[in-house]
Design a protein around this nucleic acid. Structure first.
Length: 660
RNA sequence: GCCACCGUAGCUUAGCCCGGUUGAGCGGCUGACUUGUAAUCAGCAGGCCGAGGGUUCAAAUCCCUCCGGUGGCUCCA
C-alpha cells in the first residue's frame, strides 16, 4: 500500500495504481482531469504510482491542461499527415497559445489538403485510439527514428541531458516526445486546422524549408466558438478595413508597396496627434527642426548605416556624372553593382534614420555644458526597404514618419533625461487610454564583441534605464540581448485584442554615434568632453501608431481626434438655413463638421453617417428650429433632445480640450 | 526574400472546376418624393475581368512570367 495525498486528504491505495485511477476514486468520473501533477511533475493519467506521493489534478480547461491537450492535438495532426503523405517527415510540433502547430519536411500542400487532413484527424478521434507512453534507451530510439534525420538531430542535442527517453504511440503512429499526453485520441474534439505556412528547420533560413500546419484547440465547443467569434470581430476592426471604410489612408500599387497616402480624414488624426505631442515637446524644452529626406552617402558612411544596413535600404541615388564617368571607364553593370554594395561610389540615399542629420546640426556650432541637454525633435520621415512579405497595412511599411528626437546629454544627465522620455510615453498612453502595454528594458547579451562603448558606461546606462523605469512606477522586464549594439534601450510594447504585440515607443541610449561624428562639448573644466545621445520616439512611427490606434478605438476616435467631430443632419429641406447657421457657429469655434442637407430620409442619413463614426450626430427638424435648439447623439449614441446650441458647443469644446 | 492562397465597377461580390463577346447589391449621377431616428421609388452612367505573354477558331475561365494583396516563416539599425 502507498499513501497518496490528493486534494488535501491522504488516501491509501495498492502500489502500482495509475494516477488516473486515484483521481477517479477521489473525484469521480467527471473530474475533468486530463493529466496529473505527481509531486509537482506533469504525468500521464496512466502513470503508475510506486511510492507515497502528492497528486494534483490537471484539468482540461487549465492552462497546463490546455497545453497538454494542444500538444496531443499536434500529434493527432502528425498522425493524419503521415497517413495521407507517407513521405512526410514530422519534425517538431509544440503547443502554442490557442492551439498548436507541427512542422513537416514534405512537399508543399494546399488548402484542399488541409481539409483532407482535418477530416482524417476527426476519423482518428472517433477510433478512440489509446495514446501510450513507452520508454526506450537511446540505441532503440535511434533505430526507431533512423529514417528521420530531424528526430535524430533532436536526439543528438539531448544526449547527456536525459537518461532514457520516451515515445508516445497512438495506432501505428509513434513520436519522440517527453509528454505527457491525453489518454486517447477521443479526448480531442474542439480543434480546427487554421492555416499552413512555410517555416525553416530550427528557424534558420539556410536550413531545410518545412511545411507548418497551424490549428487551434480548446477543451470545449464554447471556447472554440468564442475564439472564432473573436477572430471575426478582430477582422472587423482591422485597421486596413477601417482605414478604407473611414477614408483614413490609402495604399496605392502605382505609388508602391508599403507607402502610405494619408487621405484628408487620416491627416486630421495625424495632425492632432502631432499637435498634441508638440505641446509636450515645447513644455519639456525640445527644439523642433526640419531636415531633408535624403543625404549624401558619406553621411551614412560616417554614421555606419551604409553599407552595413544596405539590405534594408532603398538603393543609393547615384549622380549622373558618376555613372557617365564609370561608363567611360568601361564599368559594367556587374561592376557597378559590386561598387555599390562595397559602398565605393558617390551618391545620395533616402534617409533610413533621422539621427545623422541631427548630429550634423549638433556639430554646426560649438557646444558647452551650459547648452546641454540639447534636445532636437523632428517628425522625420524615413525610408527602409522592408522585405516584401513583411509589408502590411500601416504597421509594417517602407516609408514612415517617426516622432523622433535626439537628446545630447552629459553622462550625469542620462537618467533624468530618460525619465523625461518615459514620462512623455506615459502621458501619451494615458491620454489615449492604452492600458495594455508592457515595458521592456533591452540589456547587453553575453556576446560582448557585438557592443560598442566601454563596459563601465554600459553598466551606468543600464542602471539609468532601470532607475528611470522604476521611478515611474511602471512594471518592466529586463531582457538581456535585446539592447542595440550601441546602447541599452527601453521599449514600449502594446498588445492588441488578438494578443499580438506591437513595438511602439522606444528610448535608446547611444554611445556610438557621438563617437563616429566626433561630438564634443566644453565642460566646466574647460576641457572637451564627449556627449551621450538618447534616441527616443514615443509613438514610434505615426503610421504604425495610427494603425494600432484605429484598431484600439475601433475607428470611433475620441472627440479631439475625430476626423469629423459633428455631423449635422436635417430632417427636411425646410431646415437648410437653420442647419447652415448651426454649422457656422460650430465651424467658427474650430469644430470639424460635416453637413447633410440632402433629400434622403432621416433614417437613411443616420445610417450613412453613423458608419463614418463621428463623435456627434446633430439632428435638426422643425422642433429644433422653432425652439432654436438642437438634438444630438454623442459617442454612446444615446439621443439628447432640445439643447441650446451654445450649451452643445461648450460641451464639445470642453471635451476636445480635455481630450476625453 | 520564402511557402500557400487571392486579384472581376469606388466598395462587396456572381461567373472560373466544365473556355463561346461579364451579372448583381451598395455607392455615384438625374428625376420624383419633403420626409422625425439603422436602406423612399424610378431611370442612367460606370468593367480592354491586376499587367504581359502562351495554348485555342475562341480565354475573366487553361498554362507561364511579372505586379499587388492575405496568412505565416525569416528579418526589423
Amino acid at each position: 500500500m502507498i499513501k497518496v495525498e490528493c486534494d488535501g486528504a491522504v488516501h491509501e491505495f495498492p502500489a502500482k495504481i495509475s494516477a488516473g485511477k486515484v483521481i477517479k476514486e477521489v473525484h469521480g468520473k467527471k473530474s475533468g482531469a486530463i493529466a496529473a501533477s505527481v509531486n509537482g511533475e506533469e504525468k500521464d493519467l496512466s502513470y503508475l504510482l510506486s511510492q507515497n506521493c502528492k497528486i494534483d489534478i490537471i484539468k482540461d480547461n487549465s492552462e497546463e491542461g490546455l497545453y497538454i491537450m494542444r500538444h496531443s492535438c499536434a500529434h493527432l495532426l502528425a498522425q493524419a499527415v503521415t497517413q495521407l503523405f507517407p513521405d512526410a517527415k514530422p519534425t517538431i510540433g509544440p503547443p502554442i497559445e490557442n492551439g498548436f502547430y507541427y512542422d513537416f519536411y514534405m512537399e508543399p500542400i494546399n488548402e484542399g489538403d488541409l481539409n483532407k487532413i482535418e477530416k482524417l484527424m476527426r476519423k482518428i478521434v472517433k477510433q478512440n485510439l489509446p495514446i501510450e507512453r513507452e520508454e526506450h534507451d537511446n540505441e532503440t530510439l535511434r533505430k526507431m527514428f533512423s529514417n528521420n534525420s530531424f528526430k535524430m538531430e533532436i536526439m543528438d542535442d539531448k544526449i547527456g541531458q536525459e537518461v532514457g527517453s520516451s515515445v508516445y504511440r497512438q495506432g501505428d503512429f509513434v513520436d519522440l516526445c517527453r509528454g505527457p499526453h491525453v489518454e486517447s485520441t477521443a479526448k480531442l474534439k474542439w480543434f480546427k486546422l487554421t492555416n499552413t505556412s512555410q517555416a525553416f528547420w530550427r528557424a534558420d533560413s539556410s536550413r531545410e524549408t518545412l511545411v507548418r500546419i497551424y490549428g487551434m484547440c480548446y477543451s470545449s465547443k464554447e471556447d472554440l466558438q468564442a475564439r472564432e467569434t473573436l477572430l471575426r470581430e478582430a477582422a472587423k476592426r482591422d485597421h486596413r478595413k477601417l482605414g478604407k471604410d473611414l477614408q483614413l489612408f490609402h495604399i496605392d500599387e502605382m505609388v508602391g508597396q508599403g507607402l502610405i497616402l494619408w487621405t484628408p480624414r487620416g491627416t486630421v488624426v495625424r495632425n492632432e496627434l502631432q499637435r498634441f505631442i508638440s505641446e509636450h515637446l515645447n513644455r519639456q524644452g525640445y527644439k523642433q527642426v526640419y531636415t531633408p529626406h535624403i543625404g549624401k552617402l558619406d553621411l551614412y558612411r560616417t554614421s555606419g548605416h551604409f553599407p552595413y544596413y544596405q539590405d534594408s535600404q532603398y538603393p543609393p541615388i547615384v549622380k549622373r556624372e558618376t555613372l557617365q564617368r564609370l561608363s567611360d571607364e568601361g564599368c559594367s553593370c556587374g561592376d557597378l553593382s559590386n561598387l555599390m554594395s562595397k559602398g565605393e561610389i558617390d551618391g545620395y540615399m533616402l534617409k533610413p534614420m533621422n539621427c545623422p542629420h541631427h548630429l550634423r546640426i549638433y556639430v554646426s556650432q560649438p557646444r558647452s555644458y551650459r547648452n546641454l541637454p540639447l534636445r532636437l525633435a523632428e517628425f522625420g520621415t524615413v525610408y527602409r526597404w522592408e522585405q516584401s512579405g513583411e509589408i502590411s497595412g500601416m504597421t509594417r511599411v517602407r516609408g514612415f514618419t517617426q516622432d523622433d528626437a535626439h537628446l545630447f546629454v552629459t553622462e550625469d544627465q542620462i537618467e533624468p533625461e530618460l525619465l523625461g522620455c518615459i514620462e512623455l510615453v506615459k502621458v501619451i498612453f494615458g491620454t489615449l487610454r492604452m492600458k495594455n502595454y508592457r515595458v521592456r528594458i533591452g540589456l547587453r547579451g553575453s556576446d560582448s564583441e557585438k557592443y560598442v562603448g566601454n563596459p563601465k558606461q554600459w553598466d551606468k546606462a543600464e542602471a539609468a534605464c532601470r532607475n528611470a523605469a522604476a521611478s515611474l512606477g511602471v512594471e518592466f522586464s529586463e531582457e538581456p540581448g535585446e539592447a542595440a549594439f550601441y546602447g541599452p534601450k527601453i521599449d514600449f510594447i502594446v498588445k492588441d485584442v488578438l494578443g499580438r504585440e506591437w513595438q511602439l515607443g522606444t528610448v535608446q541610449v547611444d554611445y556610438n554615434l557621438p563617437e563616429r561624428f566626433n561630438l564634443t562639448y566644453t565642460g566646466s573644466d574647460g576641457e572637451k568632453h564627449r556627449p551621450v545621445m538618447i534616441h527616443r520616439a514615443p509613438f514610434g512611427s505615426m503610421e504604425r501608431f495610427c494603425g494600432v490606434l484605429i484598431e484600439h478605438f475601433n475607428g470611433m476616435f475620441p472627440t479631439w481626434l475625430s476626423p469629423t467631430q459633428v455631423h449635422i443632419l436635417t430632417i427636411s429641406e425646410k431646415q437648410i438655413d437653420y442647419a447652415n447657421q448651426i454649422a457656422q457657429s460650430l465651424s467658427e469655434v474650430g469644430i470639424r463638421i460635416e453637413m447633410d442637407t440632402g433629400d434622403d430620409t432621416i433614417g437613411k442619413k443616420l445610417r450613412t453617417h453613423r458608419s463614418m463614426r463621428p463623435a456627434y450626430l446633430v439632428i435638426l427638424g422643425d422642433d429644433e428650429q422653432k425652439k432654436e435648439t438642437i438634438s444630438f447623439m454623442g459617442p454612446d449614441r444615446e439621443q439628447v433632445n432640445g439643447i441650446p446650441v451654445n450649451d452643445f458647443i461648450s460641451k464639445v469644446i470642453s471635451e476636445i480640450k480635455s481630450k476625453k
